[in-house]
Amino acid sequence: TSIVNVSSSLNVRSSASTSSKVIGSLSGNTKVTIVGEEGAFYKIEYKGSHGYVAKEYI
Score class of each variant (00 low, 15 high):
residue 12 V to D: 01
residue 34 I to A: 01
residue 38 E to C: 13
residue 5 N to W: 08
residue 35 V to T: 06
residue 54 A to M: 13
residue 16 A to P: 14
residue 39 G to H: 05
residue 54 A to Q: 14
residue 9 S to D: 09
residue 6 V to F: 06
residue 9 S to H: 12
residue 3 I to T: 10
residue 37 E to V: 09
residue 8 S to C: 15
residue 16 A to C: 05
residue 11 N to E: 15
residue 48 G to T: 06
residue 7 S to Y: 06
residue 50 H to G: 03
residue 38 E to L: 06
residue 24 G to W: 06
residue 50 H to Y: 15
residue 52 Y to Q: 00
residue 42 Y to A: 03
residue 49 S to D: 07
residue 44 I to S: 02
residue 23 I to T: 03
residue 17 S to P: 01
residue 55 K to I: 06
residue 19 S to W: 07
residue 52 Y to V: 00
residue 9 S to M: 12
residue 9 S to A: 12
residue 21 K to Y: 08
residue 23 I to Y: 02
residue 28 G to E: 10
residue 31 K to H: 11
residue 6 V to K: 10
residue 40 A to M: 11
residue 26 L to E: 01
residue 38 E to Q: 08
residue 6 V to N: 08
residue 21 K to S: 12
residue 56 E to C: 15
residue 22 V to R: 05
residue 4 V to H: 08
residue 20 S to A: 13
residue 34 I to Y: 02
residue 48 G to D: 08
residue 41 F to A: 02
residue 47 K to I: 05
residue 10 L to Q: 05
residue 41 F to V: 01
residue 3 I to C: 15
residue 51 G to R: 02
residue 16 A to V: 04
residue 51 G to T: 01
residue 49 S to C: 08
residue 49 S to E: 08
residue 29 N to A: 09
residue 45 E to C: 14
residue 23 I to H: 02
residue 48 G to E: 07
residue 5 N to R: 11
residue 20 S to T: 03
residue 10 L to N: 05
residue 1 T to R: 11
residue 20 S to C: 05
residue 41 F to D: 02
residue 1 T to I: 14
residue 2 S to G: 15
residue 26 L to M: 06
residue 41 F to K: 00
residue 22 V to I: 14
residue 44 I to Y: 00
residue 18 T to L: 14
residue 2 S to D: 08
residue 47 K to D: 09
residue 7 S to M: 12
residue 8 S to R: 14
residue 28 G to Y: 13
residue 27 S to T: 11
residue 32 V to N: 01
residue 54 A to H: 08
residue 13 R to N: 07
residue 21 K to P: 15
residue 28 G to V: 14
residue 16 A to M: 04
residue 6 V to Y: 05
residue 21 K to Q: 11
residue 29 N to C: 15
residue 14 S to L: 13
residue 25 S to P: 04
residue 15 S to H: 14
residue 14 S to V: 11
residue 8 S to N: 11
residue 11 N to T: 14
residue 39 G to C: 06
residue 52 Y to A: 00
residue 57 Y to V: 07
residue 54 A to E: 15
residue 14 S to Q: 14
residue 24 G to R: 02
residue 18 T to F: 15
residue 13 R to I: 05
residue 56 E to M: 12
residue 37 E to H: 06
residue 16 A to S: 07
residue 42 Y to E: 00
residue 14 S to C: 13
residue 35 V to H: 03
residue 5 N to H: 12
residue 51 G to Q: 01
residue 17 S to T: 09
residue 9 S to T: 12
residue 4 V to R: 07
residue 19 S to F: 09
residue 7 S to K: 12
residue 9 S to L: 11
residue 45 E to H: 07
residue 54 A to I: 09
residue 58 I to H: 03
residue 8 S to F: 13
residue 14 S to D: 10
residue 25 S to Y: 14
residue 34 I to T: 02
residue 34 I to H: 00
residue 4 V to L: 09
residue 33 T to V: 14
residue 16 A to G: 05
residue 56 E to N: 08
residue 43 K to V: 10
residue 10 L to V: 15
residue 19 S to G: 10
residue 17 S to R: 06
residue 2 S to V: 15
residue 5 N to Q: 10
residue 22 V to L: 07
residue 15 S to M: 10
residue 16 A to W: 04
residue 3 I to L: 10
residue 43 K to M: 10
residue 10 L to C: 15
residue 42 Y to D: 02
residue 45 E to G: 04
residue 36 G to F: 03
residue 17 S to F: 05
residue 23 I to M: 07
residue 13 R to E: 02
residue 27 S to M: 13
residue 38 E to A: 07
residue 28 G to A: 15
residue 13 R to Y: 15
residue 28 G to T: 11
residue 5 N to V: 14
residue 16 A to I: 04
residue 21 K to F: 09
residue 48 G to M: 05
residue 42 Y to G: 01
residue 41 F to G: 00
residue 35 V to F: 05
residue 56 E to R: 13
residue 48 G to N: 08
residue 16 A to T: 05
residue 4 V to Y: 05
residue 47 K to R: 10
residue 28 G to N: 13
residue 21 K to G: 07
residue 20 S to V: 03
residue 5 N to S: 12
residue 33 T to P: 03
residue 23 I to R: 02
residue 56 E to D: 08
residue 14 S to E: 15
residue 34 I to R: 01
residue 16 A to Y: 03
residue 52 Y to K: 00
residue 1 T to W: 05
residue 45 E to F: 10
residue 43 K to H: 04
residue 10 L to G: 06
residue 52 Y to T: 00
residue 44 I to K: 00
residue 41 F to W: 13
residue 58 I to S: 04
residue 15 S to T: 09
residue 56 E to Q: 11
residue 33 T to E: 07
residue 28 G to M: 14
residue 53 V to T: 01
residue 26 L to K: 01
residue 39 G to L: 05
residue 36 G to P: 00
residue 32 V to A: 04
residue 37 E to R: 05
residue 8 S to D: 10
residue 1 T to D: 11
residue 8 S to L: 11
residue 38 E to F: 07
residue 45 E to K: 10
residue 8 S to A: 12
residue 18 T to G: 10
residue 37 E to T: 07
residue 10 L to A: 13
residue 7 S to A: 12
residue 55 K to V: 04
residue 10 L to I: 15
residue 30 T to S: 11
residue 47 K to Y: 08
residue 36 G to V: 03
residue 18 T to I: 13
residue 43 K to I: 14
residue 46 Y to M: 03
residue 50 H to N: 05
residue 33 T to F: 10
residue 31 K to M: 13
residue 48 G to K: 05
residue 14 S to Y: 10
residue 46 Y to A: 00
residue 39 G to Q: 04
residue 12 V to S: 01
residue 29 N to E: 08
residue 39 G to R: 04
residue 23 I to W: 02
residue 2 S to W: 13
residue 37 E to N: 05
residue 40 A to W: 06
residue 45 E to N: 07
residue 38 E to S: 07
residue 29 N to S: 09
residue 21 K to W: 09
residue 47 K to T: 04
residue 50 H to M: 08
residue 15 S to A: 13
residue 35 V to N: 02
residue 42 Y to W: 11
residue 8 S to K: 13
residue 10 L to S: 06
residue 53 V to S: 00
residue 41 F to Y: 08
residue 44 I to P: 00
residue 4 V to E: 06
residue 47 K to S: 07
residue 18 T to K: 13
residue 15 S to C: 12
residue 12 V to C: 04
residue 58 I to M: 07
residue 46 Y to E: 01
residue 29 N to I: 09
residue 52 Y to I: 00
residue 5 N to T: 14
residue 24 G to V: 04
residue 16 A to L: 03
residue 40 A to V: 08
residue 21 K to V: 10
residue 34 I to E: 00
residue 27 S to K: 14
residue 19 S to H: 12
residue 20 S to I: 01
residue 12 V to I: 09
residue 20 S to D: 03
residue 12 V to M: 03
residue 10 L to D: 03
residue 31 K to R: 13
residue 24 G to S: 02
residue 50 H to Q: 06
residue 34 I to P: 02
residue 23 I to E: 01
residue 43 K to E: 05
residue 53 V to P: 00
residue 43 K to G: 01
residue 58 I to V: 09
residue 55 K to C: 03
residue 56 E to H: 10
residue 44 I to A: 00
